[in-house]
């Protein structure tokens, strides 16, 4: 092979640099495009929904007249469902993560559980809806209630919380456990006084990300048969109810309900453009809820990475 002349070598280098820069430009363009989509999404909802951002919108029930319709039953429903979800998923997820990291022996039971957690994360959310329809709604007889929805979403976000808990626990060095056990603590005492508190920020991050995912989930809740038009709130504990007597402490969990995403779906699928405005406004409220939860989680993780040095 003939050696290249200086000019030829320069040409090769220039070509390489040009390709590098071209790719860099494509990369920046793709990234900018993805970011632009979020900005467009938020701006569109904010501008289109702007006229609905009044107190009435948050305090009114759904209505046939677009301008009088509000999201009261939807946001109350979302909060109550999230309450049930958090109460079920957080203890279960943390306990499962703790077991897998601190207690589990390397045997086939542990293997099955681990493979399961990984695979459950890939199951489409609507399949959880079908599970809940068969088990919670009909077999357990919970009906189309806040309880069914909360438990469904709890199962859905369980893998997220388990994985976050395990990662947080794994980051704690072995010397912490050894130190605790050296002064006579049992395994549970070690977990209770050391492992869980130190893993808390990581667990919290996982819990927030999980709940942010759950609050935006629509498909499984539609599948269990949540109603799209609800013009009442679940009974407040100990309040008077219409038929006489007073509501029990937990009556609200069995109440029919609607949630934010279902309200948006309902308004989006109506042909009347007046409801598009409502959908935009409610969508913006939901986005603010979800994005602020995620932002808190990302901030927590960032803080954590900076502060903890073992």
């Amino acid at each position: 092979m003939k050696p290249l002349t200086t000019e030829q070598i320069r040409a090769v280098i220039a070509k390489g640099k040009f390709r590098d820069n071209l790719f860099k430009a494509i990369g920046v363009f793709c990234l900018a495009f993805a970011l632009l989509v979020i900005v467009a999404l938020i701006a569109d909802m904010l501008l289109k929904g702007a006229e609905r951002f009044t107190l009435d919108f948050f305090l009114n029930f759904a209505s046939r007249r677009a301008t009088q319709a509000g999201i009261l039953s939807a946001w109350v429903g979302s909060l109550l469902v999230m309450l049930v979800t958090a109460l079920a998923a957080v203890p279960l997820g943390v306990a499962a993560g703790l077991y897998l990291e601190e207690y589990a022996k390397r045997n086939w039971i542990t293997n099955i559980i681990e493979i399961n957690v990984t695979n459950l994360a890939a199951v489409p959310s609507i399949v959880y809806g079908l599970l809940a329809l068969g088990i919670f709604v009909y077999m357990f007889g919970f009906g189309q209630s806040i309880l069914s929805a909360g438990l469904t979403l709890a199962l859905l976000i369980l893998p997220i919380i388990i994985v976050a808990t395990r990662e947080a626990i794994r980051a704690i060095p072995a010397m912490i456990r050894e130190g605790s056990m050296a002064v006579g603590a049992t395994r549970w005492q070690t977990c209770h006084y050391h492992i869980i508190p130190y893993a808390m920020p990581g667990i919290l991050t996982g819990v927030i990300i999980g709940l942010a995912r759950a609050i935006g989930e629509t498909a499984p809740i539609i599948t269990i048969g949540a109603l799209t038009f609800i013009a009442f709130l679940p009974p407040v504990p100990f309040s008077e109810i219409d038929g006489g007597g007073s509501a029990g402490l937990f009556d609200w969990v069995m109440s029919p309900f609607t949630v934010m995403p279902i309200q948006i779906f309902n308004w989006t699928s109506r042909p009347d453009p007046a409801f598009e405005v409502n959908a935009a406004a409610a969508g913006f409220v939901l986005m603010v809820m979800v994005l602020s939860m995620n932002a808190v989680a990302i901030y927590l993780r960032y803080k954590m990475r900076k502060n903890i040095k073992w």
């Binding site: 989006t268 979800v290 990302i298």
Partner: peptide, 24 residues
Amino acid sequence: VAKPILELLGGIPTIVFGYFALLV
């Protein structure tokens, strides 16, 4: 900066994307 923002994009509820697809 870009990674957390991408993660935020991944957290947007799909119903909001549905609205975006149909109406925008």
